[in-house]
């Protein structure tokens, strides 16, 4: 940094000095573990002993026959599907409504976006409390005369996954709304004018002007919601730990149980790799859509 800026050394060293802090931390604590998880997945390591035995594809063949893995796999897709329907569908509708309102817009938007900054751990505590058999949700249902629908939300095998997906959507839908709003602002006003002149109703304008114009943004929100919901661990772990039995077991919680709690590092890593592959593939698609948009 005290080097003569025009010296040859300065030219060589500058990029190194600027990049070194970020790059060192990044390679040691992000890239290396990523390569390691792939390596571990070919071993039967217990996470403790100094020796690791390579077992080839044994962990992966075990995955294919592991009924619990497939349950977790299926649950993860169901969970993601529910969240996508809510965050993309409802998110778009809310954004479209919000874009047409001026009064109290900031207040409404704040209420919708605020949960996004709440920690998943806090979200878990709040919803666990609301979902209790004697909790707010059931109290409400009884008050409005729908007591028959009351159920122990997180204790019921048929409902638990959907109940948790709803809690996750509550805390993430604000992000979809923001992205959709930005997309809506970019839609050409003239198109709406033209639709109005042609006598289109607001619903028709939404169907034939807004929706087509928003297709790329919708794709972005879709993939984003998908990757984010696949990565979830905190919320499920802090509410049900995958239970009751395994009815809310998702890939991340199953990996944590096998790997961190039962010391099956090799097998846990194979589950981790399956998560890695799905999420990276989705992210690549996401970035390609975004790139095409920027151009």
């Amino acid at each position: 940094m005290f080097l003569d800026p025009d010296s040859k050394w300065a030219h060589r060293l500058n990029p190194v000095l600027f990049l070194l802090p970020a790059l060192t931390i990044y390679i040691v604590f992000a890239i290396y573990p990523t390569l390691s998880v792939i390596e571990y997945s070919f071993t039967s390591w217990d996470g403790i002993s100094p020796e690791r035995e390579y077992v080839g594809l044994a962990n992966y063949t075990r995955l294919f026959t592991d009924k619990i893995f497939w349950e977790a796999f299926r649950n993860t897709f169901v969970w993601s599907g529910v969240i996508i329907v809510i965050n993309v569908g409802l998110g778009l509708v809310i954004a479209a409504m919000l874009a047409r309102v001026w009064k109290a817009r900031l207040l409404i938007q704040t209420c919708i976006v605020l949960p996004v900054v709440i920690s998943p751990m806090a979200v878990a505590t709040i919803w666990r409390w609301m979902y209790q058999p004697s909790g707010v949700i059931n109290q409400m249902l009884e008050t409005i005369g729908l007591g028959g629908l009351a159920t122990p939300w997180l204790g019921s095998p048929d409902v638990v996954l959907y109940a948790l997906a709803l809690a996750h959507s509550w805390s993430t839908i604000g992000l979809s709304v923001i992205i959709f709003l930005a997309g809506l602002q970019a839609v050409d006003e003239d198109l709406y004018e033209a639709a109005k002149v042609d006598g289109a109703t607001p619903v028709q304008a939404f169907r034939y002007v807004t929706l087509p114009a928003l297709r790329p943004v919708t794709a972005v929100v879709f993939i984003l919601t998908l990757t984010q919901s696949f990565k979830v661990f905190d919320l499920v772990w802090a509410t049900t730990k995958g239970g009751p039995i395994r009815f809310s077991e998702i890939l991340s919680t199953y990996m944590y149980k096998r790997g961190a709690l039962e010391n099956q590092y090799g097998y846990g890593s194979a589950i981790g790799v399956s998560l890695l592959v799905i999420v990276s593939a989705a992210t690549v698609i996401y970035m390609q859509i975004q790139n095409r948009e920027d151009r």
């Binding site: 040691v28 604590f29 992000a30 290396y32 573990p33 990523t34 390691s36 998880v37 571990y40 996470g47 990757t227 696949f230 990565k231 979830v232 661990f233 991340s252 990996m255 944590y256 790997g259 961190a260 590092y265 846990g268 890593s269 981790g272 790799v273 998560l275 890695l276 999420v279 990276s280 992210t283 690549v284």
Partner: peptide, 14 residues
């Protein structure tokens, strides 16, 4: 593209 969740086991070891 790396989901933190997927690499926590080796990260813990490192």
């Amino acid at each position: 593209m790396i989901p933190v969740t997927a690499i926590v086991l080796p990260l813990f070891q490192i």
